[in-house]
Amino acid sequence: MSTAVTPFRVETPQADLDDLRERLARTRWPEPATVEGWAQGVPLDYLRDLAAYWRDSYDWRATEARLNALPQFRTEIDGLGIHFLHVRSPHPGAMPLLVSHGWPGSVVEFLEIIELLTDPADPADAFHVVAPSLPGYGYSDKPTGPGWTVERSAAAWAELMARLGYPRYGAHGADWGSFLTGALGALDPAHLAGIHLAMPFALPPQEQVELDERDLAGLAALKEFQASEGGYSIIQATRPQTLGYGLLDSPVAQLAWMVEKYAAWSDHDGDVEKAIGRDRLLDAVTLGWLAGTGASSARMYWESHNRMALAPVPDVPVACSAFPKDARMPRPWCEARFADLRRWTDHEKGGHFPALEQPEVLAEELRAFFRPLREDTR
């Protein structure tokens, strides 16, 4: 197996963009839902308008240029080609920081926050940012066999940081990235200065703990989410291949499947584009469409959704950010899993996609947590 790290550029064939526009023009639309709003899924009028904008106005080349303005690479780890951004700070004392996305995301989520992390007002707060694409996502390879679980992905991330010459580093994650970062804390504590989780998960501890009103409300909301919003995860955890046929063949299917979750999980008053701009939504959807990851990205659920160990993390400093429109686990449960939980922040605004919705807030949270942990990370 080669350990070479090879520069990478996004070079989308024009034929692929032409094909996308032609498919969008030929969309066969269903009738409207029988109720108003989003109760049965994405409203027809909204999706038709968004699809028309995607076809006629959205500029993927601008996003491609933003990606190509950043150093990108690929390297083979455990038999799989992994794509990643590696943006070094101009400040030599910067701390290495590994950031991991989730579903339905990709590394484009981090385009709004990278400069905030690499070149902050105070050079003492600077980070070198490493942002890999999860296996089966973006420009990483699609696994051809089973076994690419959260834990195996975490092991690949540890190897990536070692290969890049970072003996000590910090890590952050949201969604699957949060699970992966937690697994990394259990797997690679000797090399981690600390981990920050935007969506921490933990099981109830063996000893009974007292939960406050906020914790109980979070559990109630999670139960309601599983009942009314959890169908996507059951489908992806059981039949990702069947789902993939539609997502790979129809750009509107890909659009609806992803945008519904951006709308449901972000913090807004009913208009998702107040939380995440229209072009940013389409960045994520277009990358998924062009890379053909409708099935492969869903397989993370098949591999890990009902099998995650949620291993204890006893030896790594941990910080957790709780955003009001995101899943919230009880803090005492997290304290039982993460023995060195040093920081817990209940944010006033934001949802499941903090790097998109609240980049300034997330950047400051990362600076504050890692500030006292920066020794010996260069």
Rank of each mutant, 00 (worst) to 15 (best):
T12M: 04
D16R: 05
R21M: 02
L24W: 10
L24Y: 10
A25G: 09
A25D: 11
R26S: 08
W38A: 02
A39E: 15
Q40K: 13
Y46T: 12
R48Y: 06
A51R: 05
S57Q: 10
R61Y: 13
E64A: 15
L85V: 14
S89V: 03
P90K: 09
M95R: 12
L97A: 09
S106M: 02
E109V: 01
I113T: 08
T118L: 06
T118K: 06
D119Q: 15
A124H: 12
A126N: 07
H128D: 13
P132V: 04
G136N: 09
Y139G: 04
S140T: 13
W157L: 14
P167A: 06
R168N: 00
H172A: 06
H172Y: 14
A183M: 03
L187R: 11
G194F: 00
I195G: 09
A202T: 09
E207P: 03
E207N: 10
E213H: 05
R214I: 07
A221V: 01
E224H: 04
E229W: 00
Y232N: 08
S233G: 01
S233C: 02
I234H: 07
A237S: 11
T242R: 03
Y245K: 04
P251I: 05
A253N: 07
A253Y: 11
L255Y: 06
A256V: 05
K261A: 01
W265S: 00
D267W: 13
D267N: 13
H268P: 05
E273P: 00
A275L: 11
L281W: 09
L282M: 15
L290D: 08
R307P: 00
M308I: 12
S321P: 05
P324T: 13
P324V: 15
A327K: 05
A327Q: 04
R328G: 05
R328F: 08
P332L: 02
R337Y: 07
R337A: 06
L341N: 06
R342I: 07
E348L: 14
G350H: 09
H352M: 00
E357K: 10
Q358C: 07
E364N: 15
L366F: 13
L366C: 11
R367G: 12
R367I: 10
R374V: 03
D376P: 01
